[in-house]
Design a protein around this nucleic acid. Structure first.
Lengths: 209, 209
DNA sequence: CCCTTATGTAAGCATGCGCTTACAATGCTA
DNA sequence: TAGCATTGTAAGCGCATGCTTACATAAGGG
């Protein structure tokens, strides 16, 4: 399946005189690790966990395939590492009452910070297949929900917070993975307005079910 | 990976005297097709498209693997067929103003009709990998959204309807795939109450942004 | 300078996958 | 009963995958 452009650009080991165009890159373990992580994030986001291949990640990072296993051990562990990077920063640096809007805008903004929506894409595209993905999503989601839950004094505040998180994920799914129009191209402000208005009662009100 | 119980029960072609325990099942193309479809639905829902194997589907349906390709042509086509079955019935048989609640309850009810939440699981678990899945989800979602959009006279009524659909999908994702607590075990009535209350303005109000 | 360690490389192993093929059994029709 | 299309079966082909191994090359301390 999809036997098209796979052997696009490996590395060039003995491709010619390595004089000016590509100096034989100094050995740099950290740099290599970082390039692998970056490439892995991109490929996982585009293809999903199962469809992404170690060979493509290695190719895009311009790195020998074996190094991926030397540095990360397995494809699964690589996915976990990708998901772990930059997961909780937002959670820590944002006050609770602005947390939901910040996260929502992170989902809605496409080209903002390159890591944000891509990480979400990795989550969403890998949920169905990898064993590690649901675990990671659940763990992260629980922390978000716990922070959100503190805003409401209702006795089921955690449930309310998780419902909000579910909406966030669903919107991301529709935009990033499914690409449903007009949702996918709608203005962040417009969506934000609708969602925040609708959720106002859910998150801030006291428990008056 | 996971080399555990795979060769569980093939068929027994010459396993011994076929006398009473397993009569050599009369030839029945329709029945075989149906058994394959049923098994495929289960396996796709549990494993996701990529991780599901034709061999496991055949094994669970107690059917020779080659028959799957005779009847459906390819694994992709089988997935499409699984998704196509029972997709739009609800859409046709439900009046628009009760459509969302009905669909939501379909998502929330676990053991109700065995096909409902399983179909959603197939959708969600296969979205990331299969090419056909996002297409199908988008098409179905657009029909739902169009029906819902008729309820609101706002100029962005389609967007509002899709936001509602996104919430529905997100809740399903959290419950069926991720299994986040307490959402996963919460009472349908409670979730329904929260969601419908929050969406009241979004879906019925006139456009007063 | 050599020797050890860290880094990078080439080649391939073992396996499970989707799918095909060649063939046997069954039932229908003439 | 003979002929034929339909249904079921056994075996395996070709291939891409995750991962491993055996080996080159660079850096750095003695």
């Amino acid at each position: 399946m999809d036997t098209s452009e796979h052997t696009r650009h490996q590395d060039r080991p003995g491709d010619g005189p390595v004089t000016e165009n590509a100096p034989p890159r100094p050995r740099d373990a950290q740099g290599t690790r970082a390039r692998i992580l970056h490439a892995a994030g991109a490929v996982f986001a585009e293809r999903g966990y199962e469809a992404a291949t170690v060979r493509e990640i290695a190719g895009r990072a311009e790195v020998n395939q074996a190094l991926i296993f030397r540095y990360f051990g397995s494809k699964q562990a690589l996915l976990t590492e990708v998901m772990a990077q930059g997961g909780k920063e937002q959670l820590i640096n944002t006050p609770a009452e602005r947390l939901f809007e910040t996260a929502l805008r992170g989902v809605l903004t496409k080209g903002g910070k390159p890591g944000t929506d891509r990480l979400l894409a990795v989550y969403l595209r890998s949920i169905g297949s990898a064993d590690a993905a649901p675990e990671t999503v659940r763990a992260l989601g629980e922390e978000y929900a716990a922070a959100l839950a503190a805003l409401s004094s209702a006795d089921d505040s955690t449930l309310r917070a998780q419902l909000a998180m579910a909406w966030l994920l669903g919107i991301g799914l529709m935009r990033v993975v499914v690409g449903q129009e007009p949702l996918a191209s709608a203005e962040p402000d417009e969506i934000c307005g609708h969602v925040l208005t609708a959720l106002e009662g859910l998150l801030s009100e006291d428990g008056r079910e």
